[in-house]
């Protein structure tokens, strides 16, 4: 319930009506949306039990490693009710044709693979918020100062998932494991996304806000 209460408000994409409908507009809209979501996700992280007692450098390292996984998991959860489309925001839904025009077909396909997997399992909101916290706590940054404190954070969110599954899905004792087994695909997809947006950044044709660039550079 703590994690449910910490969930950020929804964000609208608000594509600029003055821009011509092309790949640059689509990517500009997505980068702007991501930048605003990142601000919310940083606020969200501070509400995770134990996160704020980590050192500031460790908080930064977890977020620098996991920010794209958190963004993608939110898109995935929003897209569960839609067939073959990604709901980046309520006002910004992208099908495969639109993704192809934006040069994002490979990423679209990869994220939809996650959507299908969670849809098949009937991923619940409680599980989604807990998995998102696990992704952050388990971000495998190479430069953590106090690994014991990060381990405590991991244990705390892992235990929350185990408890939830024990109470609500006693019919499937392996459900928590099944959920955790989706995380490698999330990591792989986030890595692809970061690489793709790094190359878009180098291209220089798409305007990007500073926080988004800062985090792309932290991962590069």
């Amino acid at each position: 319930s703590h994690l449910l209460g910490a969930e950020p408000e929804k964000v609208f994409a608000m594509p600029d009506p003055a821009l011509p409908d092309d790949d640059i507009k689509a990517l500009t809209t997505l980068c702007d949306l991501a930048d605003r979501e990142l601000v919310l996700n940083i606020g969200w992280a501070k509400h995770l039990p134990g996160f704020s007692s980590l050192s500031l450098p460790d908080q930064m390292r977890l977020l620098q490693s996991a920010w794209m996984e958190v963004l993608i998991l939110r898109v995935v959860f929003r897209s569960l009710g839609t067939q073959d489309k990604l709901v980046f925001a309520e006002d910004y839904v992208m099908d495969a044709d639109q993704a192809k025009l934006a040069g994002l077909l490979e990423l679209h396909t990869a994220i939809l693979q996650l959507v299908r997997r969670y849809r098949a399992m009937g991923l619940e909101r409680e599980e989604f918020v807990t998995l998102k916290a696990i992704a952050l706590a388990n971000s495998d940054s190479m430069h953590i100062e106090d690994m014991e404190a990060v381990q405590r954070l991991q244990d705390c969110v892992h235990e929350a998932l185990q408890d939830y599954e024990h109470i609500h899905h006693s019919e499937d004792p392996r459900r928590a494991g099944k959920l955790i087994m989706t995380l490698p695909l999330l990591r792989q997809t986030a890595t692809k996304a970061v690489q793709h947006f790094c190359s878009i950044k180098q291209d220089g044709r798409v305007p990007m806000h500073k926080l988004f660039v800062e985090l792309l550079e932290a991962n590069a």
């Binding site: 601000v39 940083i42 606020g43 501070k46 500031l56 908080q59 930064m60 977020l63 620098q64 500073k210 926080l211 800062e214 985090l215 550079e217 932290a218």
Partner: peptide, 15 residues
């Protein structure tokens, strides 16, 4: 560290 100043600032804000 200067490179990550926005993340740093957002984490330091008390909200």
């Amino acid at each position: 560290k200067e490179k990550h100043k926005i993340l740093h600032r957002l984490l330091q804000n008390s909200t």
